[in-house]
């Protein structure tokens, strides 16, 4: 067995190594977060344009009416934002490539009396919109948004 001094050095060295790697990893992670924050990571839940977006939709939406959000864009985060911003209006989300959206929308329209739709990206062929109008763009998302009434 090694002498006590060597054993103490071994234990202290091991403890110092574990602690130091933890501290270094923590410092590096905090630095990454600070850099990301300084590069302009969002500091509010909704993009600044969301309030205009919301008011624009609510202006045409009867109280309690539901809306379907057809999203063929590439960032599902926008669905969460739209659902939360329009709450308590129920929002059905149909997400995917346009051909999948078509099939899902047909099934949804057969099952519900949904009248209104928000479309992100190209308008699917099965969604014929009356009185369609553009909604404000949301920073951080490339897709344009349209709002309109679904023709049945």
């Amino acid at each position: 067995m090694p002498p006590p001094a060597a054993r103490r050095a071994l234990v202290n060295g091991a403890v110092a190594f574990v602690f130091a790697t933890g501290v270094l990893a923590g410092v590096a992670a905090f630095s990454r977060e600070i850099r990301s924050d300084r590069r302009g990571a969002p500091s509010t839940t909704f993009p600044p344009e969301m309030d205009r977006f919301r008011r624009s939709v609510l202006a045409s939406l009867p109280p309690g009416a539901g809306v379907v959000f057809l999203d063929s864009g590439d960032d599902p985060w926008v669905e969460v934002l739209v659902e939360r911003a329009l709450f308590p209006h129920p929002v059905w989300t149909v997400f995917g490539p346009p051909e999948e959206i078509d099939a899902s929308l047909r099934r949804l329209m057969a099952r519900t009396r949904l009248r209104f739709a928000i479309v992100a990206g190209p308008v699917p062929t099965s969604a014929r919109l009356r009185r369609a109008r553009p909604l404000p763009r949301l920073s951080g998302f490339s897709s344009p948004f349209l709002f309109g009434e679904l023709e049945r």
């Binding site: 933890g22 501290v23 990893a25 923590g26 410092v27 590096a28 992670a29 905090f30 990454r32 977060e33």
Partner: peptide
């Protein structure tokens, strides 16, 4: 408190 998985 410094573990990145916990603190960030």
């Amino acid at each position: 408190g410094l573990l990145p998985a916990v603190s960030t």
